[in-house]
Structure formats: C-alpha cells, structure tokens
Design a protein around this nucleic acid. Structure first.
Lengths: 363, 363
DNA sequence: ACCGATACAGAAACCGTATCCCATGACTGT
DNA sequence: ACAGTCATGGGATACGGTTTCTGTATCGGT
C-alpha cells in the first residue's frame, strides 16, 4: 500500500527505475546521461542498455528544477497565420534549435489582457526570453506596459525582446530588433516618384500602429524631397489586410479620386488593391502602378509580380535569438553594458513588374 | 555561508519568500493561489498583497513536478511558413488557450532525425499530446516509426495525434484527424471534366507524399467515372511549391503538350502554374483553366480568383485538440475504446473564377 | 610494503510547489 | 458547561532530477 512503486507499473520510468534495474546509484545514471563527470565504460554501458530497454527520457521539469534544463524562448505573436510573423518565428525557432533551445509559441490576438496573461505564463515557465513580435499600438500606456514587462521578466532572470517595434525609452532592461521601416518607405516612395508618379493613393495601415506611422513618415519625407505636395486626402488608414486594400481602392475610385499609383502598407494590402483595380477595369501596371511592403512570398506570386520593400524577417528572428543567447553567455558584464540593446537591420526595394511610368494623358 | 537565502537576493522570488514575508506557512500561500481549499479572507488578503509586491509567479516546473501543472500540447510541423500548416496550428493553439493549455511548436524541416529528436524532447517535457502535422512520406519504415512514437508517448502518459496523414495500421495508441483528401480531388476533377475539359495537366505533388497520392487517386477516379482516359503522361510530380508549378507548366508547354486545364496539387502550385501560363502569353481562364487545392488565403487573392478545394485546416486543429482533451478527461474507459481514433472532416469545392469551358478549336 | 594521489561510485541535500495529515480554536447543540 | 463539528492553518513529505560531499578501491612511486 505504501510502497513507492510496483515493479512493472504503468507510467513514465524514472531515473530510480533505471538505477535499480542497472544495479547502480541514481547519481551514476544522472552522470552517464549528462556526461559531465567521469564514468567507467562498464557502468556507462550497463546504464545505457537499461535506458534503451526502458525507453527512458529524463523529466524536463525535474531537471530544470534541479538547476539543469533546456533554455526556452517564448514567441508571442498576434496572429500566427500572418506571413511576415511566420518568417520571424521561423528565424527564432531555427536559431533556437541550432543551440538546442526549445521554443514556445503563444498568440495574443491583439488583446492586451491576453498579452499580459501570456507574459506571466512565460515567466512561470522560466523562459530565457520572451520575444514579442509585430508592430505595436502606440497608446500612451504602451511604454509603461512594456517597461513593466521588461522589469518583471528581468527580475525573474528572463529577458524581453521586442521585434519589429520601436525601442523602449529610458533605462529599461529590454532588447529591440528593428528594421529600417521609415527608410524602406522612403525608398519605395522615391521609386514611385522617380518613375514620374505624382498622384499616389497611400494605404499605410492603422494610424495608431507604429509600423504604419513609420511607413507613412518615410513616404512623406520622399514627397518632400521630390518637392511634390503630399495631400492628406490621398491617405487612407485601415488594417493590414486584403479587404482593406480592396475597399480603400474601390472607395477612392467611387469618389472619383485621381491617382496613377498605389503605395500599399503591406503586400497583402497591395494584393487587395490590385484586385479592386482589376474589378474596375483598370490594368496594372499599365493604368495604375502598385507597390507593397514586406516582400512576403505572395509578392512574387501575384501577377504582375509586386515591386515591394524587402524586410529581413527571418534574419530578424535569428538576430533576436542570438542577442539573447549572447547576453546569457556574456554574464553580468555584458548584461550591464546597455550596448547592443537596439539592433537595426536594413531594408531594400525589390523591383519587379508592378510599376510603370504614369500614362501621359491630357487633363 | 550556509544560509538558505539572503533577504534581498536577486533572482526569482519563491513561495517561501512570500510565506515568510506574509508571516504564514508555505502551504497557505499555495492554497491561496490555487484556490482549491478554504482560506480566510484575512489570510488571502495578506498573501495576495505580498504576491503583488513581490510580483511573484509560481514556478511552473516545480508545480508540474508536484503534480499540478498546465497541460501542454506540442505541435510538430515541417515548415512553419506553410499557410495550411499555420492554420492548423492556429486551430490547435486557439483551442488549447481556451482550456488554459499551453502550446509548444517545433519544426522538423522534413528531417526524420529531427523529428525523432523532437518527439523525445516533447516526451521529456511531459506534454499531454504531440500533434504531428502534414502529409507523410510513405516509405516502408513510416508505419513502424510512427507506431514506435505512438507507443513511446503512450507509455509516458502522452498521446500521438496525426493530422492530415493517413491513420496507422494495427492496434496503435494514436489518434488521426484527417480530411477527405481523395474525395476533394474527385470533386475538383469532376468540376473540370463537367466543364468539358478533357486534356488536363495534373500536378499532384511528390509521388511519395501521402496527400499527393490521395489527390492523384481521386482525380483518376473522376476521369474513370467520366469515361475519359487518364494519360499518365499528363501527370508531373514535384514539390508543393510555386517553382514546381511554374516549371512544370513551362516544360509541358515547351514539349508541345496540349491541355486546356491544370489540376494543381495545392494553391501555391496553381499560382506558379498561372504565372507560367501568363508568361507564355496564355490567358487564364480564357485559354487555360486552373484549379488548386487547400483554399488558403492566396487562392482568393490571385487574379483570377482560384477555384479550389476547401480543406478545414483550422477546424482540424481544433478537433485534434478536443480529441486529446476528451480522452484525457474521459479516463481509462474511454481511452481503451479505440473508438473515435480516426476523425475525418469533409472537404468541398469552392468555385471562383479560374475555370471556364475549353475554347472550341479546330485541331 | 607503505603512502599519497587518483578515479570512480554512492548517500544525501537540495530545487519550488502541492497536498496529506494533524493540530487548534471557534462554534454548535443540549 | 461540555463534547462533537467544522473551518483553517501548519509541518512534513513526495515529485524526479542534479550536484556536493564523502568514501573506497586502485595505482604508481619509492
């Protein structure tokens, strides 16, 4: 009744089972398996045989309780089906795997409550880092919220990494991996302007989303550089989805708005815009040019292939993980430096077939 | 020197720290937090205050070692950037979150070694279930390999779930969530045939991939049902990617092959095929019709919008998780039943604009 | 043949939490 | 006023490992 374990009992085999069956101590089994202590060849063989026979694997929970354990990164994402995010996740996961780290994924669905719950959950899991993906809504409380997360995680020996968001202000223990969002938009808009376009419908995204803000700002700067007036009426805000692209163009057309090009905030928005133009009998790029942003696979799969801004999503994921791994190995010295807390990767325009100089017309 | 912990020491706060600071026992803190034992209002308040002050969260590893703990599902996937897989993952993750479960993600990259390593890693983590996504390569050893996984996981109190793969033969402790792959292909091919197409280029996918086999089989059955000879020469195998679709069509065209429609194994392959046709000066669907399979967002974002087979990926994910959760709650009785081990969801054709009757022409 | 060094194996002390079992004080009914 | 319940709180133990500390052969050197 009170005996600890019946011989052939069901359930997972423990290290004790292995030890008993191999006729050695628990400590020896542990040492054979972790291999960080001298063990005789005979003992190793005996233990390994039993391990194979029992199909034994160590209990990760017990292991990490006792101090060992596999480092784990948590990836928090709004929507797992977004192509751009998927690539970042791939980068993180790939780099993690390379080091024998594990990766957890959670989706926030744009819900701050859920985000908080997830961060706490990850804290419970004792993850090495929490990677937060995607543009942020620039509410007032955002900075405070993130700073709180950062400190909370830091106090628990974990670390916050922001990917694709602007860095936090002040002395906050967080790392940011960013890309030259505004620069990409500047280059993209310049491309359009240098092709001769002057009337451009701009669909930057949600007004409160940091990435949309940056893209809009870059575009505006390009217009200024070219001495072309930037008309606020030509800007339509909305979500980064296909429907928004479609509806924005449909609406602009219905209102008799004149434009020779569409500067979309993402490739998916561009796809929607393209479809709406077609539906209205307009040809792309003959009648209207279109450019996107992100360079997800879709961009090169559309007809015509989309000229867009390449964002190194997968690379960002890898960089994010490397930053965490480095800091973890670097020890306190590096950790205090506050240097390399903000990494910025470059973007560049990928020219395909969706842009052509505007048709010369009398009006 | 030998003191257990210095007052303000860095690192994560433990339940002992909370107990000490609140002047109560460790047991009481645990009870307040788990809330499954009567506790006086006064004690609860005192404990909660300290918990907030210390920003304490329980250690998940210790918790699950001690018997409590959050159930976790592991999702194993070849390639996290595949749209279809992303949707299954979303379904699983969503359903998991709904129940307060956690989800882990690992990518195998089509590497059997890595798959094995991941399954073992998940076994170490003591996950409630391992969900293996995506079509499998039908090598001889596949059945053995999966059966071994299933038994291994089962012995550890976990469970194997195969999603989008054919079920395992024999008495293996695994659950399969499948969709009517062959039926969908049959319906899709019928759609093409009933529109009058007789010369159809078929791009089912890799010959060894179970999903490709099913899709090819369904198509063949439809041809037979229509009394149309199915010419092996019209079938081109290859990976499920854009490039394959492009190259297969390009090659077929170069060889002077005559066809009025393309039956692609996936939407992405269809996109590649479409692009190749355009490059050759052919119009879709005026000159050549195209259909895909999967109904990922891309299908409705292409121009023309793609007629395809809808596969309920997200639903499959949800169903998979529900199956695991049910079996876990159902106890041994249900677990032995062997019933409901193979769930099949329906598919249906989504008619869009990429199919038109073949142009009547003299030849 | 004796001594110190070396190489290995085992016993035991944790890691942080949940829970079983027992103790205590308050409350109830008579 | 007293025994019996009931509602709570605390102490001890288990969970499955890792690691430190300790002990015992074995070996080489003199």
């Amino acid at each position: 009744m009170s005996q600890r374990k019946v011989a052939g009992e069901a359930g997972r085999a423990t290290i004790r089972d292995v030890a008993e069956r191999a006729g050695v101590s628990v400590a020896s089994v542990s040492r054979v398996l972790s291999g960080n202590y001298p063990v005789s060849e005979d003992l190793r063989r005996r233990v390994m045989k039993v391990v194979r026979d029992l199909d034994y694997v160590t209990n990760a929970h017990a292991r990490s309780l006792a101090g060992g354990g596999t480092p784990t990164v948590a990836i928090l994402i709004n929507n797992i089906t977004g192509a751009a995010f998927a690539h970042v996740a791939k980068g993180v996961e790939g780099a993690a795997t390379l080091r024998g780290w594990l990766s957890l994924v959670g989706t926030t669905g744009d819900d701050p409550e859920r985000e908080l719950a997830l961060v706490n959950l990850m804290r419970q899991q004792g993850v090495a880092a929490v990677v937060l993906l995607g543009g942020a809504y620039d509410y007032d409380e955002y900075q405070l919220r993130m700073a709180r997360f950062a400190r909370s995680l830091d106090a628990a020996g974990s670390h916050l990494v922001l990917v694709g968001r602007p860095p936090l202000e002040g002395d906050v223990p967080a790392t940011t991996v960013d890309y030259d969002n505004e620069g990409g938009a500047y280059a993209m808009a310049s491309h359009l302007l240098s092709a001769g376009h002057r009337k451009v419908l701009v669909l930057p995204g949600h007004a409160e989303l940091t990435t949309a803000q940056g893209r809009l700002k870059g575009a505006r700067r390009a217009f200024e550089a070219y001495g072309v007036p930037f008309e606020p009426g030509m800007v339509r805000h909305g979500p980064y989805d296909y429907e928004h692209g479609y509806e924005a163009v449909e609406e602009a057309l219905a209102q008799g708005m004149a434009f020779t090009a569409v500067l979309a905030g993402t490739d998916v928005v561009a796809a929607g815009a393209m479809q709406a133009l077609r539906a209205a009998g307009l040809r792309v790029p003959d009648d209207v040019s279109i450019v996107g942003y992100d360079d997800i696979p879709l961009a090169s799969q559309l007809t015509p292939q989309l000229t867009t801004v390449h964002v190194p999503y997968e690379e960002m994921g890898r960089v994010a993980l490397r930053a965490v791994a480095d800091r973890r190995e670097g020890g306190a010295a590096r950790r205090k430096a506050g240097d390399g807390d903000h990494l910025v990767l470059g973007t560049h325009v990928v020219v395909r077939n969706s842009v052509r100089p505007p048709a010369t017309r009398r009006d």
